[in-house]
Design a protein around this nucleic acid. Sequence first.
RNA 1: GCUCGUGUGGUGUAGCGGCCCAUCAUGGUGGACUCUCAAUCCAUCGACCCGGAUUCGAAUUCCGGCACGAGCACCA
Length: 496
Amino acid sequence: MEKKVKERREGLPPLPNAESGNVVLRFAPNPNGPLSLGHARGVVINAELARMYDGEVILRFDDTDSVVKRPDPEAYALIEEDFTWLAGRAPDRILRASDRMEVYLDYAAKTLSENHAYVCQCSSDAFKEFRISKTECPCRNRAVEDNIHMWGQMNDGTIQPGGAVVRIKTDMTLPNPALRDWPALRIQHADHPLVGDRYKVWPLLDFQSAVEDHLQGVTHIVRGKDLMDSTRKQTLLYEKFGWTYPETMYWGRVKVHEFGGFSTSQMKKDIQAGQYTGWDDPRLPTLRALRRRGYDAGAMRKFWIDLGLTQKDISVPMSTLNSLNAKAVDAEAPRLSFVSNPRTIELDITEIQMDKVTLPIHPEHPDKGVREWPLEDSPLKVKIAFEDFTSREARRLKDFADIAINHKKEVSRGWVGQIINIERHGNTPIIHWLPSNMAQPAVLLLEEEGELVVAEGLLEINDYPDGTVVQLERMGFAILEGIDENGARLLVRLHG
RNA sequence: GCUCGUGUGGUGUAGCGGCCCAUCAUGGUGGACUCUCAAUCCAUCGACCCGGAUUCGAAUUCCGGCACGAGCACCA
């Protein structure tokens, strides 16, 4: 008897019926804003599966609605950029549904002429009654020629928006009410931001996506389980054409504790209302905001891959992502000292024979070199945080000396301290500090429970370029981001 | 209401008839090390929704509950 050895599977589950080199996947967002954390799962999973099977991923813009979820012309480029950043590579093909209207309309005409669909003039309320009572709508038995004729009227504007819709003939007695004669195309006269008012009839997602998936040779669809009924509707259409529906897998609903759900249109409104500074406001769950805060694309990929491909509705804390990200970012993050709520202490250094303090750039990577803080005139003006200042016990200025603070003796704008000893012995509590000649004013932006908190302080002078992720000792990771209007160095806090 | 789906430690996840007194990650706790309240290391805590059935044996199959989620849009 042979004993099978079970091994823990790494990464994503295998795709059913997948042949390496012969897999086509797609990610199909609505371009009404840049990508958010909610979309990230779709990007990561599809790109990762394509990588595993040496296949392709299509980025398809499903922009066939210009009324309810109107496309934002700027979103196309933003999404493409977000996709490329997150996936670590560009999509293999990019498609815009609005560019492909002729194709969809041709297929619609074909569907009608083969009597697989009909033009329905019932209002949505009226049709709802038919659907609930499992009765066929009178429009259903219209002759093919009449359907074609009305199709022409839909397209030439004779029939007004709301006046008619094309429905796929399924079966009104189907157990699942969602599938009964589902709508495939509707009239929409609104100006499309990209193609204008050239088309009067636009396909709905179920039809557009079904046709396009077939045309593009999509072999596998991985999407949210809210689209399960969509799969069933589309399968019904595929059967009429004799096409084979792609293999389909689903994931459940995701929430991130800190953000709740992700509504692009809500964010857009809030930005317009001035509640946020833009799509990359650090409080927002957009990919660009996360990237601005210093999140690493690789850590984010790992995060979504680890969550797997289950149909369970999940709610994950950011701390999981943060932990992954800290691992990704730690080795490269130079250490810097940041002092919030600074207080000045004057130290007499005439007695000590030191002209500088030397600290490692990264304690675990000595090869990265050191930073040097020159010690100039005595008394030396030293900055420490107010929280560290209040104690009366001896403190260790990290990598320098033990000091005692005389709280009674106030000088100009600070207090006086004495150096007790240079060598470290015992475990005097360590505090962070900066000599004033190494300190530059800085502003640290923190996001705390949805609030933007601004912490002012002093940052160790450095010449790292903007965008560098640094570790502020004892505080956590942050990213350098330019100079503000008052000349202070700007930092955006990442996480601990 | 109808239809579909899901229920494994605090949070995710693996396992899908015996390897499971259940994996891994994250988290909690304790300790070691360290001139960071970080990192690293070591130890430890903690779960198969409930009830039946099938079986020598069930987290894994079946039936029935219960809970949660989604769809039933001229949105995607």
